[in-house]
């Protein structure tokens, strides 16, 4: 469970102070498929970064499971991210010199998993995202949709407690978006993986089970809906 309590964040943008988050309270339970939506500048990405330990709040607390991430040292926080959080970025951010297989394997190598476990899990994940025939291709040899699917497989490779995806479909066409959402929904339903998105893509919002709407650093609404997805 992720528990966010009264998070406030202010940036110094030159001479101007920008209040990105103004007291956010939020609880996300295991197995949720949550979209954080809102216009640009509403604080979606800042909230995801703080939940993911990439940024720290000026005020408030983030607890993941029983861990207050503010209490972790820099290296402990990096280790925590490695073992508990999966990341999917808007522009894929794969390692360009590695193949799809090596990109997925990478986090398991950092976790010092043995060869057998790495190979099995990499193959399973690439099959589950439909890229079993692309394993030896490098990012520049794949389409944007394929790269983002590799990024999803990479995010899941370390067996994280949840996946944070910042605008994952922003650079994808409608077919690739639909494919990616299908894969993530299936993983969510079949393997109970928690997904948290920031997005303003209606196609993602339509298929999210919970939609949290933000504006000016505040939560405007938080609604759960019955999945009607095919």
């Amino acid at each position: 469970m992720i528990q966010v309590t009264d998070i406030q964040k202010t940036y110094n943008d030159g001479k101007v102070q920008v209040q990105a988050l103004r007291g956010i309270d939020l609880v996300i339970k295991e197995g949720e498929f949550t979209a954080i939506v809102g216009p640009s500048g509403s604080g979606k990405t800042t909230l995801l970064n703080i939940i993911g330990g990439l940024d720290s709040p000026n005020y408030g607390k983030v607890k993941i499971g029983n861990t207050d991430i503010a209490q972790l040292t820099e290296n402990e926080l990096i280790d925590f991210r490695l073992n508990h959080i999966g990341f999917v970025f808007q522009s894929y951010n794969l390692i360009p010199v590695l193949t799809a297989k090596e990109n997925v394997e990478f986090l398991m190598l950092l976790q010092k998993k043995d060869d057998k476990e790495r190979n099995e899990r990499t193959t399973k994940l690439l099959v589950s995202v439909g890229l079993e025939d692309q394993i030896n291709k490098k990012p520049n040899e794949m389409s944007g949709g394929q790269q983002q699917r590799v990024a999803v497989a990479r995010a899941l490779a370390s067996k994280p407690d949840f996946v944070l995806a910042d605008e994952p479909t922003a650079n994808l066409d409608s077919t690739a978006t639909a494919n990616l959402l299908d894969i993530m929904l299936r993983l969510n339903q079949e393997e109970n993986i928690t997904f948290i998105f920031s997005t303003h893509d209606q196609r993602v919002i339509d298929r999210a089970r919970r939609v949290i709407t933000m504006e000016d650093g505040k939560i405007l609404s938080d609604s759960m809906k019955q999945m009607t997805d095919k």
Partner: peptide, 16 residues
Amino acid sequence: KKELGMLISVGMNKQK
């Protein structure tokens, strides 16, 4: 910069 930031984000510690 962006790629190195990504590596640190996903769990590659700074020593590595």
